[in-house]
């Protein structure tokens, strides 16, 4: 019999804790596929966030460490500086990266630290059960914005790619989506480019990925995809912000 599809070697056989329709499962599989395709599994080191993806070290079949909430870029900075020939990436949610860890990501980016960042923007705090995130949209209902996010009270959502695009230390910067097959294919491409740019030692490569959290959005997985496409992508346009050349 001919095998037409196999689980990537970079994933373990562990069952994830992710809810049905969750973006994390899709994205982590893409990362694993890319690492397999580039043949770098044995020299990759991942840094897990505090968030729903906290157990990443159980799912990835390569070296992965925990990091305190938001501090993955600081942890990655040291690992990559000391082991420059390894592939180092952080995997971070919006609360992790754009709230508690804002200083760490901005400064790692400003220093041009040569690792890749996969930023999973689901516009909500998944793990703690649905509070407002820094990327929660205006009007979006969360458990701490029961009447919808009101900028007058809760402030405005942060567009992280736009913010980082002014920093010279960031080489490659793209926002992708997982709301369609097309989007998922582009996301995989972006993940691959980010790692390839890292291998060129050019500075930080950063991919923001719009992802679903059906559980906390209180939507079906199918409706969640629709909401990303029709609502989230409007505020966070899918776009290449920085790409220094053709690397694929």
């Amino acid at each position: 019999m001919k095998a037409v599809y196999q689980k990537p070697e970079s994933l373990t056989s562990e069952t994830t804790i992710y809810c049905p329709g969750c973006g994390h499962g899709i994205i982590q599989k893409l990362i694993a596929e890319v690492i397999d395709e580039l043949g770098v599994r044995e020299r990759t080191i991942g840094i897990a966030p505090v968030g729903c993806a906290v157990l990443s070290y159980n799912y990835f079949n390569f070296d992965v460490t925990e990091a305190a909430h938001g501090r993955a870029p600081a942890v990655a900075t040291a690992i990559k500086r000391l082991l420059p020939s390894r592939i180092v990436f952080t995997y971070q949610g919006d609360g992790d990266l754009a709230a508690i860890g804002t200083a760490e990501i901005i400064h790692a980016a400003a220093r041009g630290e040569n690792f890749s960042v996969f930023f999973i923007n689901n516009a909500v705090y998944g793990m703690t059960k649905g509070q407002m995130a820094p990327t929660t949209l205006e009007g979006q209902i969360t458990t701490t914005t029961p009447g919808g996010r009101n900028p007058q009270i809760h402030g405005f959502p942060i567009r992280v790619c736009e913010l980082l695009s002014s920093l010279d230390g960031v080489t490659y910067l793209e926002r992708t989506t997982t709301s369609s097959i097309q989007g998922i294919i582009s996301t995989k491409k972006a993940i691959k480019k980010a790692i390839l740019w890292q291998m060129q030692q050019k500075g930080m490569s950063f991919v923001e990925i719009l992802a679903s959290c059906p559980t906390n959005w209180k939507k079906s997985p199918a409706d969640s995809m629709k909401w990303i496409k029709e609502t989230l992508e409007k505020y966070y346009p899918v776009k290449v912000f920085k790409d220094p050349g053709n690397i694929l």
Binding site: I45, I47, T65, A67, A68, R71, A74, V75, A76, T77, A78, I79, R81, L82, L83, A103, E104, I106, H107, R111
Partner: peptide, 24 residues
């Protein structure tokens, strides 16, 4: 060796976490 002027002490200690994790 590696010297980094971190953006805060929070970052310094988490950099140490990374350096120690890498075995240095």
């Amino acid at each position: 060796g590696v010297f980094i002027q971190a953006e805060s002490e929070t970052s310094s200690i988490n950099m140490l976490f990374g350096a120690a994790a890498a075995g240095f």
